[in-house]
Structure formats: C-alpha cells, structure tokens
Design a protein around this nucleic acid. Sequence first.
DNA 1: TCACGACGGGACGGTTGCGTTGCGACGCAC
DNA 2: GTGCGTCGCAACGCAACCGTCCCGTCGTGA
Lengths: 185, 185
Amino acid sequence: MLREDVTDAIRGAVFEELAAVGFARMSIEGIARRAGVGKTAVYRRWKSKLHLVLDLVAAVAAQGMPAPATGSLYGDVRSVLELASYALRHPVASQVIPDLLVEAARNPEISDAIKAALLDQQQGVAAVVVRAAVERGELPEGSDPDRALDLIVGPLYWRLTVVRGDLPKGYLDDLAASAVRALKG
Amino acid sequence: MLREDVTDAIRGAVFEELAAVGFARMSIEGIARRAGVGKTAVYRRWKSKLHLVLDLVAAVAAQGMPAPATGSLYGDVRSVLELASYALRHPVASQVIPDLLVEAARNPEISDAIKAALLDQQQGVAAVVVRAAVERGELPEGSDPDRALDLIVGPLYWRLTVVRGDLPKGYLDDLAASAVRALKG
DNA sequence: TCACGACGGGACGGTTGCGTTGCGACGCAC
DNA sequence: GTGCGTCGCAACGCAACCGTCCCGTCGTGA
C-alpha cells in the first residue's frame, strides 16, 4: 500500500516546481528532491512528468466551478470576476496556469486536460449566467456565451498575467460594469 | 568581419526554434543545427540564448508600432484589433509571444525587453487613441488608457492564445463595437 | 514474531546540452 | 600570393537528468 503522506508531498512538490521553473524545465529528480522523497516513490505512482501533471489538472477539474446566481447580470459578472481574480492573483496559480496554457499549445494531452479543467468549466458558467440574463430580459435572445466569456474574463486575464499590472481598488467593479455594457447591445 | 548571411540564418533559426519548443527548451546546439551553422558562429555573436532572444526582442521593439488615426474611436479600435489579430494569428508569433510572456514572469531581463517591445508600444497607441477620442468628445475627460487597452486587447488575446478558438467573420467588428460601448460610460 | 512492501538513498549507463578548443577549408583585402 | 579571420565540424570535460536497479531501514498486518 502506497503511503498517502508521500503521495501528497509529491503532489505539493509538483505544484511548487511547476510554479518555480515551469513544465518544460521541471524534472522528476527536482520534484523528488523538493518533496524529500526518492525517485522510486515517484515512478511507483506515475510514469512520467506528463502523467503527473495530467493527474493534477484532472484533480482540479473534478472540483468543479460554481456558477453564481445573484439575480442580476452585473452581480453574476462581478462574482465571476471575483473568483477569477482570486485565482489569478494566487502566486502559485498565476504562474502555473499561464505556463500550462502555453504548454497546451504544443501538447494535445495537456490541451485536453486544461480544456476540461478550466475552459469547459468557465464556458459552462458563462452559459448559465447568459441564459439567466436572457430569461430576465437583460440580454437579447441568442446572446453568445463564448463571446460573453471573452469580454468578461479577457481583460482581467490580460491585466493580471500579461501586463502583470496591479488591480486598483474598484477595478473589478468597473470591469464588471464595462462588460455588462459591452454585452447589452 | 562576421558574415551577415550567417547572422541572419541564426536569427531565423532562433525564431523557428522559439516557436517550435519554446524558450525553456531551446538550446544553442539546436539553433546551430537548424541554422546549418557551427556553434562557434553563434557564440562569436552572442554570449547565451538569453542574449540572443533579448537582441531579437529589441529588434522588434525598434520597429515601433503605428498608432491609427481614422477619425473615430470605433475606427481606431477596429484598426488596433486588426493589427493585433494579424500578429496573434501568425503561426510563429502566436507561439513566441505567449511563451516569452510566461518566461518574463520568471526573468526580469526578458520582462523588461518584452515590456519595451510590446506593452509600452501598445500603451502608447492606447494613449494616442484615447486622447484623440477625448478631444472629439467621444470619451469623457480623464479616461484611463490602460483600462481601455485591457478592454480592447484583452478579449482578443484571451480568445486567440488562451482558448485558441477561431475568429468568426464579423467577430472583430463586434468586439470593436463592444469595446467602444464598454469605454463610454 | 515475522514477512512483506514501501521507503530514502545511491549508483548505474545513456542521453543531451553546456562552453571551449583545435582543425583544415575558404574568401577577401592588401 | 600571402595572411588573416570567419567558416563548419568534431571533440573535449563537465553537468544534469533520464529510467532502472539494488541496498538497508522501517512500519504494518497476519
């Protein structure tokens, strides 16, 4: 029976290593070193660093992402932005997510995993939010949820992980209002 | 005197290598191999792969980025989106840019170079566009150009390099209109 | 008490890239 | 035609990591 504390230590080390050096530079030796574990313990559980990461991403995907239901489009959008900004400001996640997204452009397996763990989840949330807004009459029939997601999350992702600028007080409120204004049209 | 055709071959190989495997995995051996050149020829010109890439990025930065002046905010925004989508759909650039942006989060030198080559340029363009719109009375006094840039480029970057979705006909027109609507408020 | 299995650690041969060096070939200026 | 400098190429010793194997230790369940 594999020891669970060792498994957890390895998982944690993978996250840290992924954030510190990125997927491309990450090595199993480095993970084992960081986890204070023999390489054997890693290979006994996973075949390669790819499987390790796919496993982690799948675990994140399994958590699911809650869809807001505040009763207004603005409230829902603001809520989504709050959640997203929390994730993208986390020091580990803000390194790991963009890194894996870039890696996904070169590796279909990572691409599929990321898609299931993040993009599909987000698109699902967007679909729920848009449908609710349509039913309330806040958005016209046939509004495209994907386009809505672009307009809501795009600017935030750009600012936090591309420009790597700060998030001034009230920025999320502004952004939510802007997105709602953009969507209604 | 260093032969210029060799220098050009190396520069080209760096771009291709950067797109194919990314900065982290890129090796000087690989570059020389791809360029059909000895390692000596590379080391005679640059100290390391970092210097190689910094040099390339600086060359891009030197080109400059033209600011549109169509006479309307919508026209200017649409023009910026056209240029950006052209770059982000280029098969090499669409790999290299996100890769270097992620690398920039770990390496201050790359960060500075990218900032000068891309972000500062874009912020300059945004500043010009916003100022013109304010003078025309299309935007209120004191509109923030950075926020404008987030709203204009963010959704496009998100769609093209994160979701890696397609760009439906009319999407840029929609996006430009949405951005203008979001900005006025 | 005892056997089993996972543990950390270390060593293995093999691969890849590092940055440097020496070589003979080639091209160009003088 | 004679040098000089760059060229491609191959080799160098060094380092890191690969995936595997063997060891002695330790904890647990029968």
